[in-house]
């Protein structure tokens, strides 16, 4: 990828970060907390995938590297999800 491609990704990341803050500044967190929660976390996930795919070049690496990363992510999510569910 050349510098132009990296720049496009950077602009998208910047806009998404701003959008997350705008969600709060617009009062959505107070008026519709779980909708705001979902929106903000989805934006974070998109940003994270963008950084991993393009800046860390996962898109061009063998799939096994992605599986390695997903392995750690799934382990962390399993711990968080199951632990939180256990006290609901």
């Amino acid at each position: 990828m050349d510098w132009k491609g990296y720049t496009v990704i950077y602009v998208v990341l910047f806009v998404f970060a701003t959008a997350q803050a705008v969600v709060e500044f617009a009062g959505l967190v107070d008026s519709a907390y779980w909708a705001a929660f979902g929106l903000i976390m989805v934006l974070s996930v998109i940003k994270a995938v963008g950084v991993a795919a393009y800046y860390q070049h996962l898109r061009w690496e063998p799939r096994a590297v992605t599986y390695l990363v997903l392995g750690g992510t799934v382990a962390a999510l399993a711990l968080t999800g199951a632990a939180a569910y256990s006290i609901l």
Binding site: V69, G72, A76, T80
Partner: peptide, 12 residues
Amino acid sequence: ASDIVLFGAFIG
């Protein structure tokens, strides 16, 4: 990958 679990456990 290990660091993901470390931070994941902190966030968890």
